[in-house]
Simulated assay, not measured.
Amino acid sequence: MSKTALITGATAGIGKACAELFARQGYNLILTGRRQDRLEQLAEQLNNSYNIRIAVAAFDIRRQEEVTHHLESLPAEWKQVDVLVNNAGLSQGLDPIQNGNYADWDTMIDTNIKGLLYASKIVSNWMIAQGHGHIVNLGSIAGKNVYANGNVYCATKAAVDALSQGMRIDLLSHNIKVTAIHPGAVETEFSEVRFKGDKERAKKVYEGFTPLSAEDVADTIWFVASRPAHVNINDLVLMPTAQANATTFNKKTS
């Protein structure tokens, strides 16, 4: 019997890489994100390559009404979700707390914490009804090691860490697994979004070492999702070999 994965933030980066990997493994997919055109393009590509069933839902994860409407409007057969990958997340700005931008704070809190909660509340109830499931939350090394000017972003990812622990306890009696994945430096659109489209500044973040790729993180997510039914990996941190913690790197200069 085929399984189904719901992936938030599937239009780029880690979410897109997860979609491709889970599709390759024969999963049917529910793909969400804000960019309808990218979702449809990805769905067509994966359907042609792997002949799986795919549903797309374009909405803003920050808007509770949109999340509820689009997910609850799915046909009943799509509500049998085996794996939820709470991937949608971002960082905005890199300012000391006294210079922080209120809009940036709201965007990070609404996306990284509240959006995760909105999706998890709905899908966890589907999983409870079917008696099993696995929720994978994308945290960050920023949730483990706070760094200068990371303040609010680090706080949102620390919240993901804490929420994952709480969800694991609350959902334990319902046979639902919960895993938190905390990557170090991953070269995706992350830094470009943080620096609001400044490609040159974003590129410099990854100079002098080999960062993780979106595919590296997706491969790790697949690993935890493919463990036997009696095995749950609660918490996993992965780093580039050249990174020791949030701020310590072995960078080569040319």
Rank of each mutant, 00 (worst) to 15 (best):
W222E: 00
I14A: 01
G208M: 04
F249K: 02
L74I: 08
H70L: 07
L29G: 08
T210V: 09
G89S: 07
G115N: 00
S173R: 14
L212Y: 02
L94M: 12
I135C: 04
R24P: 00
S164V: 02
I221L: 06
G150E: 07
V67W: 10
T68C: 07
L42M: 11
P228W: 11
G208N: 07
A17E: 07
S173C: 09
H230A: 11
L172Y: 13
S140D: 04
Q98F: 09
N48D: 15
A158L: 08
V178G: 09
A5S: 13
T179Q: 07
A103D: 15
E20G: 03
I109A: 04
S254A: 09
K79L: 04
E44W: 07
P75L: 06
S124H: 03
V160A: 08
A148T: 13
A155W: 06
G100F: 11
I97N: 08
G184S: 03
N250Y: 14
K204L: 10
H70N: 14
A214W: 00
E77Q: 13
T156Q: 04
K121E: 07
G15Y: 03
E192F: 01
N48G: 12
S213T: 15
S2E: 13
N151E: 04
R194N: 00
T11V: 07
V186D: 00
A214K: 02
T4V: 13
H69P: 02
G150L: 01
V83W: 08
H69W: 03
D37H: 14
L74Q: 05
N232I: 09
T241S: 13
A229T: 14
G197W: 03
R194G: 05
A185N: 05
I141D: 10
A242P: 04
V56R: 05
R24M: 14
L6N: 11
G26E: 09
G150M: 04
V217D: 03
Y147I: 12
S226A: 15
F223T: 09
S213M: 01
I122N: 06
D82F: 08
Y27P: 08
D235G: 05
A10Q: 02
T220N: 02
Y50E: 04
Q45S: 15
N99G: 15
A180L: 13
G100C: 03
P240Y: 00
S191Q: 10
I169H: 09
T247F: 09
Q92L: 10
K199L: 05
A244V: 13
Y206E: 03
T247A: 10
R201L: 13
P240R: 00
I97F: 12
E200K: 08
E65W: 04
T241G: 01
I54W: 08
I113M: 12
G9I: 02
T8S: 15
H70T: 02
Q243M: 05
E189S: 11
M127T: 03
N175M: 07
L46E: 01
E72C: 10
G26Q: 07
G115P: 04
K144W: 12
T248L: 06
E192P: 00
I233R: 02
V136P: 02
L116W: 01
M167Y: 14
N149L: 02
F223C: 00
T253E: 15
C18F: 02
R35K: 15
G150C: 10
E65V: 08
P183E: 00
P96S: 06
S254L: 10
Y153F: 13
A155R: 02
